[in-house]
Structures are given as structure tokens and as C-alpha cells.
């Protein structure tokens, strides 16, 4: 079977194998690694992870769908996840979300037509003392306000996303 995952996936996994008493424990790391390849996890990737781990494909789907960080649908190049939980909410996260929706002309949960941005609502990120906060792909952006968010989005629109 031709695998949709690169050699790098298998090399990275090889390094981790000795760190766990069994292969199933590698499911989470493997899904993280596989997601790096396309930014999300197509069915073919999930099947390849199942084959690598040696479990039924359904078992991988079961695990992957439990965790919010595994994207089972395609996402934009820049995934903005705005925290709207208590601490951020007290500091104006709802207004930020409203602003982002207007600015990007999409609703929360959607991706812009050009595929550049996906906007999501996020549960507490653990940045409460620097609220409101968001995750922009793997990075935290903290002590946000509308100006800061606007500038951040503008910067991405102009300069794109560094990979």
C-alpha cells in the first residue's frame, strides 16, 4: 500500500518507539506528526497511522476525534483560535471574536475563501493572566485587543504564513 505519509514521519516515530512500553502509546505523537504533513488529517493519513501502529483504522478515528487539536477537516494556512473562556471573556473576548468574524468575513468555524484563515473558538488556553489570548497556529498571542488583533491579521494578509 502506498502511504500518504513521508519518510520523515517514520523517521520521527522511530526515534520515539523506545520511549514507550508499547506501540499504541505512540498514537497521539503519531497523529501530531502526521498532521504536520498536510496541516490536517485526511482519511488516508489516519489509515496510514493505523497501519503503522498496527490497530484497526476505526480505533485511530476514535482517538483522533476525541481531541480538538486534530483537524479532521482541512484548515486555513493560519488557524486563529480565540479563547472565549471565563478569564478571556471577562476581558472582552466576545468583542474580539465579533471583530475577527467581521474582519475576515467569515463566521467562527469557517475558513476564508482564499484558504488563508480559519477562525475558531478555543477553550481556556492557560494564558488567563494575559487575557484575552488566542493561538495562531502554534503560537500564543496574548494581551490582545482589537488593534492588536487587527494588526496581526493585516500582517498575515501581507506577509503570509511562515512555515
Amino acid at each position: 500500500m502506498s502511504t500518504p505519509l513521508s519518510n520523515k514521519f517514520y523517521e520521527e516515530m522511530k526515534k520515539l518507539e523506545s520511549r514507550y512500553p508499547n506501540k499504541k502509546a505512540l498514537i497521539l505523537p503519531a497523529l501530531h506528526q502526521a498532521q504536520k504533513e498536510y496541516g490536517w488529517l485526511p482519511k488516508e493519513s489516519l489509515a496510514a497511522v493505523a497501519e503503522y501502529i498496527g490497530v484497526h483504522e476505526a480505533q485511530i478515528r476514535e482517538v483522533a476525534s476525541f481531541y480538538t487539536m486534530y483537524n479532521l477537516k482541512p484548515v486555513g494556512k493560519m488557524h486563529l483560535k480565540i479563547c472565549t473562556n471565563v478569564a478571556c471573556c471577562l476581558r472582552g473576548a466576545d468583542e474580539l471574536m465579533g471583530f475577527a468574524e467581521k474582519k475576515l468575513e467569515i463566521e467562527c468555524g469557517e475558513t476564508t475563501k482564499d484558504g488563508l484563515f480559519t477562525l475558531s473558538e478555543e477553550e481556556c488556553l492557560g494564558a488567563c493572566t494575559a487575557a484575552p489570548a488566542m493561538m495562531a497556529n502554534d503560537d500564543y498571542v496574548e494581551e490582545l485587543d482589537i488593534h492588536k488583533l487587527n494588526a496581526y491579521i493585516e500582517k498575515i494578509k501581507e506577509g503570509g504564513v511562515r512555515s
Binding site: 498514537i27 497521539l28 486534530y70
Partner: peptide
């Protein structure tokens, strides 16, 4: 990978073992 419940110690252990 994004699940509050993994802060619960046995949820965490299941997650460490590659489960939900």
C-alpha cells in the same frame, strides 16, 4: 491534543496510553 478531561489523572493516563 486538546481535551480538558485529560487533566483528570486517569483520563490523562488513558491519553498517555494512546486512548481517548
Amino acid at each position: 491534543a486538546g481535551a480538558y478531561i485529560c487533566g483528570e489523572e486517569t483520563g490523562l493516563l488513558n491519553s498517555l496510553e494512546g486512548k481517548r
